[in-house]
Design a binder for these strands. Structure first.
Length: 426
DNA sequence: TCTGGGGTCCTAGGACCC
DNA sequence: TCTGGGGTCCTAGGACCC
């Protein structure tokens, strides 16, 4: 076994950059992308960051004057577009390595094992330029002997202009200096709570963290924290995961555009989220047997609060949407209390297994061996061809007054024929 | 007026068993 | 007064990620 060497390729301000590809006139403007329901800012372009806006800020808290004065462009999130752009980036990256882990919508780890004879920084530049050419998106590349160090190298590449978006920390003469430069909250695996705890104990940067005793770290931060510190010391503890792992749980939940008080609307929303979740379940050829429904009021408001959840186990694992809608509606009726303004409901599917591993039953047909699977597959096919939600359940309602807001949505340029951009000759 | 959604992993403690 | 011990399984909650 040779030494591990990985590159982390990360798209810069991914959502904002996707919008810029199709709206070149916003490239130099501050751009912000909103969460579902147009609630908070989830992605910011460099120019928006410069104005002091941070991720997670509710849009209504951003000064209107600031928006107008700087011509800030705000968009609803367009996941159809981002998902498709992501797939194109990943396709391009797969040219550069036999082993690729798609870590998130905008990040991938590439194994560069066996490539050490190359100038890896130069290779990183090639990767960067090729993605730009093929997909039009800017990326940064960090290279290191472990995933955690590759993350740090990537962060470094982004923050220092001289790196021009590519940095290799491997055997770098200033290795410790770079770790000293990395504040604890910027270490992959250290969140808000642990960062606070480390600072309380006098540990402020990655280098100081590597000097802490293993026993102490494990006691305070479990084995997860210990792995992180070992990775910082150059010992690989997190393998590249090439295979896409089947989901263990599937959640569908959304805040409402407006508060909902009556049971009927909640039942409709629950049915709708059930439909989404079970469709996802089927798309991975899986079945589930546990349904959990949760609901809550708006915790930011100074009004009576209520939150609850409950679960139901199906007699047999299923992929049949009505099985889940029945169960979910039953649960909802149990936990619903009148008199509250609800902000959100959600459905979670758990105890998920692959269809082929579903147990048989002597006394009742399973999802696989009666008509239910055929009906579902048929419905999925039609919705795939004719557009999603062509066939749906009446229990999801028609008016859907509870639906989320998406007022600044851009077209689905790459995934919908109606939205394909037109190039006009002058 | 308006504050996201979807995941994973680990551990402590209770339930249960012999 | 004294009231076992060890193993496994499950779950809720807390931490993290993007």
């Amino acid at each position: 076994m040779g030494k591990e060497i990985v590159a982390l390729v990360d798209c810069n301000s991914f959502y904002a950059s996707c919008e810029e590809v199709f709206n070149p006139d916003i490239i130099d403007k501050p751009v912000g992308i909103l969460s579902n329901n147009d609630g908070i800012i989830v992605a910011l372009s460099k120019n928006l960051k410069k104005l002091g806006v941070t991720r997670g800020t509710p849009i209504f808290k951003i000064n209107k004057h600031l928006i107008r004065k700087n011509d800030i462009r705000i968009f609803s999130s367009n996941y159809a577009l981002y998902g498709d752009m992501s797939a194109r980036v990943m396709d391009t990256l797969s040219i550069f390595t036999p082993e690729l882990e798609i870590y998130s919508i905008d990040e991938a780890f590439l194994s560069l094992k066996g490539f050490e004879y190359k100038d890896l920084t130069q290779y990183g530049r090639e990767i960067k330029e090729t993605v730009k050419k093929h997909v039009g998106l800017p990326v940064s590349v960090g290279i290191g002997p472990t995933k955690t160090l590759a993350k740090i190298a990537n962060h470094f590449a982004k923050k220092h202009n001289f790196a021009e978006g590519v940095f290799d920390i491997t055997d770098h003469p200033d290795h410790d200096k770079i770790l000293r430069w990395t504040q604890v909250e910027n270490i992959w695996g250290i969140g808000r709570q642990y960062a606070k705890m480390l600072r309380r104990n006098g540990i402020t940067n990655a280098f100081e963290f590597t000097q802490a005793p293993d026993k102490w770290i494990q006691k305070k931060m479990t084995i997860v924290g210990l792995r992180t510190v070992k990775e910082l010391r150059g010992i690989s503890c997190l393998d590249l995961e090439k295979d896409i792992k089947p989901k263990k749980e599937i959640v569908s939940s959304k805040s409402f555009g407006n508060p909902v008080t009556d049971l009927q609307n909640l039942l409709e929303a629950t049915s709708d989220y059930c439909t989404t979740a079970v469709k996802k379940l089927r798309s991975e050829n899986q079945v589930a047997s546990l349904v959990i429904v949760f609901l809550s009021t708006n915790r930011f408001k100074n009004e009576p609060q209520y939150a609850n959840y409950a679960k139901v186990r199906l007699p047999l694992p299923s992929g049949y949407t009505p099985d889940f809608i029945h169960a979910a509606n039953k649960i909802l009726k149990r936990i619903y209390r009148p008199g509250y303004k609800y902000k959100k409901v959600g459905v979670m599917l758990a105890d998920i297994i692959h269809q082929s591993k579903a147990p048989l039953d002597l006394f009742q047909p399973t999802y696989l061996d009666d008509d239910r699977k055929i009906i579902m597959d048929c419905m999925d096919d039609i919705n795939e061809k004719m557009g999603s939600h062509k066939i749906t359940y009446a229990s999801s309602g028609i008016k859907k007054t509870w639906q989320m807001r998406r007022e600044q949505l851009t077209p689905s340029y790459t995934t919908s024929w109606q939205h394909i951009p037109v190039v006009k000759a002058i």
